[in-house]
Write a protein that binds this DNA or RNA. Structure first.
Length: 431
RNA sequence: GCCUCCUUAGCUCAGUCGGUUAGAGCACCUGACUGUUAAUCAGGGUGUCCCAGGUUCGAGUCCUGGAGGAGGCGCCA
């Protein structure tokens, strides 16, 4: 019995007879020679069946292989430039471990609805594997970046009794007779950990009951939310550009194969390095008006406005200090222009839109209470959040980065639904 | 919530002016072929034309209502 190896390690076994276990992607037969491409989760390898060299039972068994059946394939490893992956097996033995009949997903175009209905199988497809691999790398890079900068990871609750930013977009559930909500942000909790650890971040799923039907929205998405004590809005933007630059660098360094599978033009990523350009909201409105937009000072920028602004740059663009009315209650008023708050959005290039929203937080108790009242939010739900301003308040800043949007931009793909294993959309809860 | 479009074979789609028996490719099965890369060639059958009404001699096609889906806007990350 040949020894079992993983496909990614085949280069260390050239000339040996080995066994690979995995799933058959495709087969091709040509009379006296036949092929089977097997995926084992670490790579793909082609097995070559030669009629004149094989036990007739093994030769016949090639005909029983179907798409996605499970096999143990034994053969001699050799280098072969024509083979996908660069190596192939000269097959000597084949064991069918489990059959697979009428696999629904074919190597051709399918509709989105069909693919999402079969998401549990779609995950096996090469571009989906590549996209989720990049997501996993970005996720790991996030932990590495913040760990290396002395941040402490704080896991914030998903079930909460208090409201996040906007009462209208919460998923409500029953909690032993009380109302509970799925967290739409970890920020308020992560802020409370600042006096304990100074630099903290959370990274987990967040939930928004927004009836949004766009390529940029999920009802369940993963967000990275750092928070730093004694950091102002300017420090905050510097952290953001360092972090995003690091994510791009890691993807280029470690996901070259995946980006190739996804047909990403990586030349558009190679120069993405800090510092990123910055424009104030007020200047952005003036520029948009010059370009013919009908936006007026005080309105939030729409998606077409954001795209229009980023067209002038090949780097992510900060737009900072938005009008107070367009932003959340916890953002700190700008002392130089009280109509605005100390905040920033980071807009990704190539039309991908907002990947970060950040701000310096309001650290003055009375002003924060005023803002809660103005927004008609229930103050009693924020008691513990207000305590943070009662017991040793301090300037602090933070931001939230949407992982799926960031991965969609880095991979250059159209829709963020491909970058979470099981996307939750307005009208999709299964599988 | 608003705007636009779509729904025909397992999948992706075509179907003319409303016309008599509903079309293709892929998938699947059979055969040929010693280097394929979504192989190629020959043969094989598959339909609740999304649902319910209506108009008509006749509806996949036109009308009304409903359901499901896609793209965009708003909102946001």
């Amino acid at each position: 019995m040949a020894h079992s190896v993983e496909i990614r390690d085949l280069n260390a076994h050239v000339g040996e007879e080995v066994t690979v276990t995995g799933w058959v992607e495709t087969t091709r037969a040509h009379g006296k020679v036949a092929f089977a491409v097997v995926r084992d989760g670490t790579g793909v390898v082609q097995g070559v069946f030669l009629k004149k060299e094989l036990d007739p039972a093994v030769w016949e068994s090639h005909g029983t292989l179907t798409q996605e059946c499970t096999v143990a394939l034994t053969g001699a490893v050799r280098e072969e430039p024509r083979a996908p992956g660069g190596f192939e097996l000269g097959v000597t033995g084949l064991e069918l471990l489990s059959p697979s009949d009428e696999y629904p997903i074919q190597p051709k175009e399918h509709g989105v609805d069909f693919l999402l209905d079969h998401r549990h199988l779609w995950l096996r497809s090469s571009q989906q594997r590549a996209g989720l691999k990049v997501r996993a790398e970005i996720s790991q890079a996030t932990h590495d970046f913040f760990y290396n900068r002395g941040f402490t990871r704080i896991d914030t609750p998903i079930l909460t009794g208090s409201i996040g930013e906007h009462a209208g977009t919460l998923f409500e559930t029953d909690y032993f007779g009380e109302k509970a909500y799925l967290a739409q942000t970890g920020q308020l909790y992560v802020e409370t950990a600042c006096p304990a650890f100074r630099r903290v971040y959370c990274f987990g799923p967040t939930f928004r009951a927004e009836k949004s039907k766009t390529r940029r929205h999920l009802t369940e998405f993963w967000m990275v939310e750092p928070e730093v004590a004694f950091a102002d809005s300017d420090d905050n933007m510097r952290l953001q550009e360092d972090y995003v630059s690091y994510l791009v660098e890691r993807a280029l360094e470690r996901c070259g194969e995946e980006l190739k599978v996804l047909e990403r033009d990586t030349s558009k990523l190679e120069h993405v390095k800090a510092p990123f350009p910055r424009i104030s909201y007020t200047d952005a409105v003036a520029r948009l008006q010059e370009k013919g937009s009908e936006v007026e000072w005080g309105q939030d920028l729409g998606a077409p406005d954001e795209v229009s602004l980023t067209e002038d740059y090949d780097l992510p663009l900060f737009v900072y200090n938005y009008p107070k009315a367009a932003k959340a209650f916890y953002m700190k008023e700008n002392p130089d222009d009280p109509r605005t708050v100390l905040c920033d959005d980071l807009l990704a290039p190539e039309g991908y839109g907002e990947i970060i929203g950040g701000s310096q937080r309001e650290d003055d108790l009375d002003r924060l209470r005023e803002r809660i009242a103005e927004e008609k939010l229930p103050e009693e739900a924020y008691g513990w959040y207000l305590d943070l301003r009662r017991y040793g308040s301090f300037p602090h800043s933070g931001f939230g980065l949407g992982i799926e949007r960031t991965v969609a931009w880095i991979t250059g793909r159209h829709h963020i639904r491909e970058f979470i294993p099981y996307p939750r959309l307005m009208n999709r809860l299964n599988p």
